[in-house]
Design a binder for these strands. Structure first.
Lengths: 253, 253
DNA sequence: CGGGATCTTGAGCAGGTTCAAATGCTGTGG
DNA sequence: CCACAGCATTTGAACCTGCTCAAGATCCCG
């Protein structure tokens, strides 16, 4: 990788506060970077690498941007805690949210082809990320082959996720969309050892609607219908899923 | 096959069907694999590699499958001549076409995460591909670092393309969708030195509609409207774009 | 505790779908 | 080489899902 040589000024943020504590592998188990490192030395992670990477932590508050469209690619981000939305724009200003990302997921990979960010990433709640500068990633990629493979896998996974979203946007009706959406979060929370049936959505109804290609009002209506049908209960952004099987049959893969 | 002749006027496929000549770099300029190799030795491609790869050519006839959903990942494919559609399915059998791929493009990269194909690839007309077995790709990847970077770039590019499609499916109306679609082909043909304003679409109206998330009939109606507005002329699958600028302003990025 | 943001629900409208039918190609078999 | 069967394309008309506009309820933050 030759493109990553340029060094970007580090972001002048009040993120320094959190930097004093050392990140232990245990607290990083959920971190995408941990996944990148895991196979380096068999089951034992190369701690030097991990620590180098995770030392570069930053704290963002709700509404702040990780990166903007068009900015040169500086770093990729692993979410340690919190959530982020990414979105693209039409040239007349319409927005399409392309993903909601939670603890342990990686951001910024779509930028590699263009050498600049092609989407924008905005933090939905107070969120801590590990910022991995491209040159650091490059250096370790050259040293440790399995990281390259992990990168490929992660990017390939992103392609798969996008395929699923295209299927949803192109072929599913409102109920199928919302059911699919909820089950996606259920699975992802479960993978991170959170409850798969009771969780908090950190984004607004409007964001959900935008992501799923439907109006905010339609999202509300479908939520209400699901509640009437005993499929779930909602309390603002707090959701409890009551009948995963029925939701699955509604979502239709 | 006449369709293929119309599509590729300068490259009579039928004449090459029983092609036994060695593929020279020149005839491979448009091939995605060539892109993979190009930076190996500066401007000069490693011919051993290129020849090894492109020797593995296969000819497919209209309607045949390159791979099916669920099959273990064996190889990736570079289209040398012809066109291919890829699609995914809901579990109740609905189809969403995720891409139309033409000469020089690479297929199968989304399968790396799952180690099996997650979409299906069907040939739209007589098509020649280079089949690159994964172990071959692996071997050369280990030997030649720049191939890895090329792979990353190509996958990243696929993520970008998918983002564009999501924007289209989520936020654009019928006219914007068709205009965007036509301009995408215009650009891609131009990049391959074909005419950007006069080309043959190798897929049916129904496929176009499926891809763009609209009914076949709507595709026809928008084509008719565009023709009434002097934006283009159509003759079955033959399209001539008359006013790229106005199409661009309709497509809205 | 006030005010803006978010969420919810209702009513009417519209873009696009579905159903139906006519017409035109294509390539296949005799 | 030609006729015909089958598929693709086009156009019309009625319908419906989800959108827009509007208004009220609720929450959250300072």
């Amino acid at each position: 990788m030759t493109a990553a040589v340029r060094m970007m000024p580090t972001r002048p943020l009040a993120a320094r506060a959190a930097d004093s504590e050392v990140c232990s592998p245990v607290t990083c188990r959920d971190c995408g970077i941990y996944g990148l490192c895991r196979e380096v030395n068999g089951p034992d992670v190369d701690l030097r690498l991990l620590e180098t990477i995770v030392r570069n932590r930053k704290l963002f508050k709700r509404g702040e941007l990780l990166y903007r469209i068009g900015e040169p690619l500086r770093a990729i981000y692993a979410i340690r805690c919190g959530s982020v939305k990414t979105y693209v724009l039409t040239n007349d200003g319409r927005v399409q949210i392309t993903g909601f990302h939670i603890t342990g997921e990686l951001l910024g990979l779509g930028a590699i082809a263009a050498d600049r960010y092609t989407s924008e990433a905005r933090v939905l709640e107070t969120t801590m990320v590990c910022e991995v500068p491209l040159d650091v990633l490059d250096a370790y990629s050259n040293e440790i082959p399995s990281i390259r493979y992990q990168m490929l896998k992660i990017m390939s996974q992103e392609i798969l996720d996008n395929q699923e979203l295209m299927l949803l946007l192109g072929k599913k009706n409102a109920e199928e969309r919302l059911a699919t959406f909820l089950l996606s979060f259920s699975r992802r929370f479960q993978r991170r050892s959170y409850s798969p049936t009771k969780f908090n959505l950190s984004m607004s109804r409007s964001d959900i609607g935008n992501y799923l290609g439907m109006a905010e009002e339609t999202v509300c209506r479908v939520f209400s219908r699901f509640q009437d049908d005993q499929l779930l209960t909602t309390e603002r952004r707090q959701v409890q899923l009551l009948d995963l099987d029925r939701l699955k049959s509604i979502a239709r893969g």
